[in-house]
Design a protein around this nucleic acid. Structure first.
Length: 248
DNA sequence: CGTTTTGTTTCAGA
DNA sequence: GTCTGAAACAAAAC
């Protein structure tokens, strides 16, 4: 479930827990669970792939990693990492995820302008960060959570295909319009991902990710583990141009 | 049924 | 210090 739009769906599904009191806590997480008992949920938020449950003076940060899952008012067979049980038999259950406390105010801890799904997302600041890293590969930049919080491997592959850019292009070699398109599509595609995911039609809209051939020219996609991140990339050698700076 | 992977942290070693 | 790569985690889809 893990890219940013999927966490937005979780946040929306869990919105009813706003204001609820935690009555009982279970789970195999090593965090201090007694601390949560009696606390009221002040807000349910997200930043990139982080799902945040805010209490008075501290918050829970839940990251589903690669294989994490959740159930709301239902349980899986496997033991929960964390189960937050409220009144009227409502509960939030999380499995195979990372659970941490964040001390203090979330607004102090997070820069919301980095989150591609946020109302406070800031494309100009994003472009400025990209311009400061001319040697960075574009495939790594998209996966960098300090630049594009919430973007994951699927969004990476789809955005690069849409803007016709090879994953091993360097940021410094991209023209201003290409850099604009990169930043703009990171957000636009993420919101389309959100709508398609909600409608259970996400996979059928993939043009590059997990696809055998380029829908634009018909040749086989190259499939390789690229960048410092060594994440799976699908790209078309014909349609996606590799931009490299001329000085090297 | 074995392989693969929507992700991140940690740690050893250079 | 700082960078890199591998391991660890863990589960369902294909």
């Amino acid at each position: 479930m893990p890219e940013g739009p999927s966490i937005v769906i979780l946040r929306e599904l869990a919105a009813d827990f706003y204001g609820k009191k935690i009555l009982h806590v279970e789970g195999n997480s090593k965090i201090d669970k007694t601390r949560l008992v009696g606390q009221y949920i002040k807000s349910l938020r997200s930043w990139g792939k982080h799902f945040l449950i805010e209490f008075s003076g501290f918050s829970l940060c839940i990251h589903l990693l690669m294989f994490g899952s959740y159930r709301i008012n239902e349980r899986k067979e496997s033991p929960p990492r964390l189960s937050l049980q409220c009144s009227d038999k409502t509960e939030l259950n999380f499995y195979a995820c990372s659970v941490k406390y964040i001390e203090g105010e979330l607004d102090e801890f997070y820069d919301w302008s980095v989150d591609v799904m946020s109302d406070f997302w800031n494309p100009a600041a994003t472009r400025k960060k990209l311009r400061a890293l001319p040697e960075k590969w574009v495939c790594d930049a998209l996966l960098d959570q300090d630049i594009f919080a919430g973007v994951g491997n699927i969004i990476k592959n789809e955005v690069l295909f849409r803007i016709h850019v090879h994953p091993l292009s360097t940021l410094g070699a991209l023209s201003s319009p290409k850099l604009h398109a990169l930043v703009e599509q990171a957000r636009t595609y993420s919101f389309e991902f959100l709508e398609w995911k909600k409608a259970f039609v996400l996979k059928q809209h993939w043009l590059a990710h997990n696809q055998p051939t380029c829908p634009r020219c018909g040749i086989l996609f190259i499939r390789a583990y690229l960048g410092k991140t060594h994440r799976r990339s699908f790209y078309c050698e014909h349609c996606q141009k590799r931009y490299l700076s001329t000085k090297s």
